[in-house]
Design a protein around this nucleic acid. Structure first.
Length: 337
DNA sequence: CAATCCCGCCATGAT
DNA sequence: ATCATGGCGGGATTG
C-alpha cells in the first residue's frame, strides 16, 4: 500500500509543535486532574495525537521522577506532582551514596584541555558490571532513558556546580567511553530529557558565562535542608494550571489501527483542523524567550507554560473542542477494544 | 557552522 | 509468530 510518505513536511511544518517538551506539557495537563489514576498508552497516544513511540519516551522519563508508575502492560498509574519531591529525595540520597559529586567536578571552562586526572569518573551503573564470560543474562531491564533520567537528576542534586552542560553530563555518565558516537547518542538522549524537564520547570537553560556554551541549571526546587519524613507537603500543591488543552492533531498517519475509528466520525480530524483560529503558525508558544535572568519567584516549577492563543475566546473554544474530541475518541477507542 | 532533537527503523523481550 | 517496548542515530531544523 505504498508509503504514505510521512516525510512530507508540508510548507507548514514547525518542529516546535512536535517537541517532546510540548508533548510532555500536554500529557501532564491531560492527566493532572482529579479522578485520574490510570493511564493507558494507547488512549494517551490517541488523545495527544502522536505515535506510540513518543509516549514511551514521555512515560519513561516521568516515571524516573515518580510522576508515573508502571502498573502493567500498557497501563501506568498516575502519581502526580506530589510524588516528585519524594522521588528526588531518594535520588539525591542514592546519588550521594554513590559518588555522583565526583562526576561533575566543574565542567565549566577548560573545554578540550580536560585533564584526565585520576578520580573515578565512570560507571554510573549501579550493580555489578562484572561480566566474565561474554553475556550476562542479567537484567536487560532498565537500559537507559529511565535510568539515564535518574542519573541526570542525581548529577544536579549532588553536584556543587550550579549548571551543567549536556556534554558534561554525558561525559560524566558515560564512564570512559569517549567514543564520538557514544557521546553523540548520549547527548541526544539528554536533550530529550532536558526538554521534558524544562517544560516542567525543573531545569532551565542558561549560558555559561565563560564559554557562552549552553547549559542547564536545576531550578530552586531541590528540597531544602531539614530531612526526616516526607514532610514538605507543599502548601501550594494545588498549583493546577488550567488553560487550553491542545492536541497534536497531526495531519498524518499516527496510528496503525484501521481507520475504523476514523470513518466512524464524519467530522474527522480533517475537519477538526482549526476552524476560526487559522493554522498560521505565528502564534506558536515560546518556551523560553531567551529572556532569562531574574524570573519571578520560581517557587512552583509546575506552572507549565500554557500555549495560549492570543484570543481568549478562541482559546476557550478550542479547549472545549478538544475536551469533547478527547473524550469522544477515548470512549470510541475503549468500546472498539 | 553549531546546537537541537524529531522520526521511525528495527532489535529485543513478553506472550 | 505477534505484540509491546524502547535503543539508537540519520539527517532535518533552528539558532
Amino acid at each position: 500500500m505504498a508509503s504514505r510518505d510521512s516525510r512530507t513536511k508540508d510548507a507548514f511544518y514547525c518542529r516546535k509543535e512536535k517537541s517532546l517538551g510540548l508533548l510532555c506539557t500536554n500529557f501532564l495537563r491531560l492527566y493532572d486532574r482529579e479522578g485520574v489514576d490510570s493511564i493507558g498508552l494507547d488512549a494517551s497516544a490517541l488523545q495527544l495525537g502522536v505515535e506510540r513511540r513518543r509516549i514511551y519516551d514521555i512515560v519513561n522519563i516521568l516515571e524516573g521522577i515518580g510522576v508515573l508508575q508502571k502498573k502493567e502492560k500498557n497501563q501506568y498509574t498516575w502519581k502526580g506532582y506530589a510524588a516528585i519531591s519524594g522521588a528526588l529525595e531518594v535520588l539525591k540520597e542514592q546519588g550521594q551514596k554513590e559518588e555522583f559529586h565526583t562526576y561533575i567536578a566543574n565542567v565549566s571552562n577548560e573545554k578540550e584541555h580536560n585533564l584526565n586526572s585520576d578520580s573515578k569518573t565512570e560507571c554510573p551503573d549501579k550493580c555489578s558490571k562484572s561480566d566474565k564470560s561474554g553475556e550476562s543474562p542479567k537484567h536487560k531491564r532498565e537500559k537507559s532513558l529511565g535510568l539515564l533520567t535518574q542519573n541526570f537528576v542525581k548529577l544536579f542534586l549532588c553536584s556543587e556546580a550550579d549548571f551543567i552542560s549536556l556534554d558534561g553530563a554525558a561525559l560524566a555518565l558515560l564512564g570512559d567511553s569517549h567514543d564520538r558516537t557514544a557521546m553523540r547518542t548520549k547527548v541526544r538522549r539528554l536533550y530529550d530529557i532536558a526538554n521534558v524537564f524544562s517544560s516542567m520547570g525543573l531545569i532551565e537553560k542558561v549560558r555559561d558565562p565563560g564559554s557562552g556554551k549552553p547549559a542547564f541549571r536545576w531550578t530552586s526546587v531541590g528540597r531544602s535542608g531539614n530531612g526526616s519524613s516526607i514532610a514538605s507537603e507543599d502548601k501550594n500543591r494545588k498549583r493546577r494550571a488550567f488553560g487550553a488543552d491542545i492536541t497534536n492533531t497531526s495531519v498524518k498517519k499516527c496510528n496503525t489501527n484501521n481507520a475504523l475509528t476514523e470513518q466512524h466520525q464524519k467530522c474527522s480530524s480533517k475537519d477538526f483542523v482549526f476552524g476560526p483560529f487559522s493554522p498560521n503558525v505565528t502564534t506558536v508558544w515560546n518556551p523560553e524567550t531567551r529572556q532569562d535572568g531574574q524570573s519571578q519567584n520560581s517557587d512552583s516549577p509546575f506552572c507549565a507554560y500554557r500555549p495560549q492563543y492570543s484570543n481568549k475566546a478562541v482559546g476557550d473554544l478550542f479547549h472545549h473542542y478538544t475536551e469533547a474530541w478527547s473524550s469522544w475518541r477515548g470512549e470510541a477507542n475503549e468500546k472498539q477494544q
